[in-house]
Design a protein around this nucleic acid. Structure first.
Length: 168
DNA sequence: GATATGATTGTTACA
DNA sequence: TGTAACAATCATATC
């Protein structure tokens, strides 16, 4: 439970929304900016041996397992979901191909593992298109989050009404 | 039947 | 700086 509280980490939109504020509704130019910005960041992390970090974390943590998932941990159903990362977009494509080539393997555990290995072998140029998509989605998420916060501040009772249907 | 788990990486925010 | 949580997916397991 405490995790969820932590998770509410909230107001993340405040900082990120700043970025999105720079690119309000916009087209390619700003998209480019976004892409470049994120690209640099991504490149850095991509170049960094993120792998060891992950493994280290995993090994050190012994994977508590019951940490994620839970699905409806979101306090507010109307709160925008976190956008998928570049890797997740790649995972979508990869899964389709993987299942075509390996119809017997349906477990996301195996697919995820294979996808992770493939991802590590990909070059930054190959990944950049996924980073681009993820960046756009993140900008959308920031805007949605800002809007969500604004609405909440204005009066979330309206939402409670909607929520009532959720009651069921 | 409903919900959790596993496996992956990236991103974000807090301590 | 490090760490924890969560995003998608879906067969499988558990309750």
């Amino acid at each position: 439970m405490a995790k969820k509280a932590t998770k509410s980490k909230k107001s993340r939109s405040s900082s990120t929304s700043a970025a999105s504020a720079k690119n309000p509704s916009t087209p390619s130019n700003q998209k480019m900016v976004l892409r470049v910005k994120s690209s640099e960041k991504m490149k850095r992390s991509a170049q960094q041996s993120v792998v060891s970090e992950r493994e280290k974390r995993r090994t050190s943590k012994s994977r508590p397992k019951s940490k994620q998932k839970k699905k409806n941990t979101r306090i507010d159903a109307k709160m925008p979901k976190k956008p998928p990362t570049a890797f997740f977009y790649f995972l979508e494509d990869f899964r389709k191909e993987f299942q075509e080539q390996n119809p017997d393997i349906k477990s996301m555990r195996d697919i995820g593992r294979a996808c992770g290995e493939k991802w590590k072998t990909m070059t930054y140029e190959e990944k950049v298109k996924y980073y681009d998509i993820a960046t756009e989605k993140r900008a959308e998420f920031d805007r949605a989050m800002a809007d969500y916060i604004k609405r909440k501040e204005n009066g979330e009772d309206q939402e409670t009404e909607d929520d009532s249907e959720f009651d069921e």
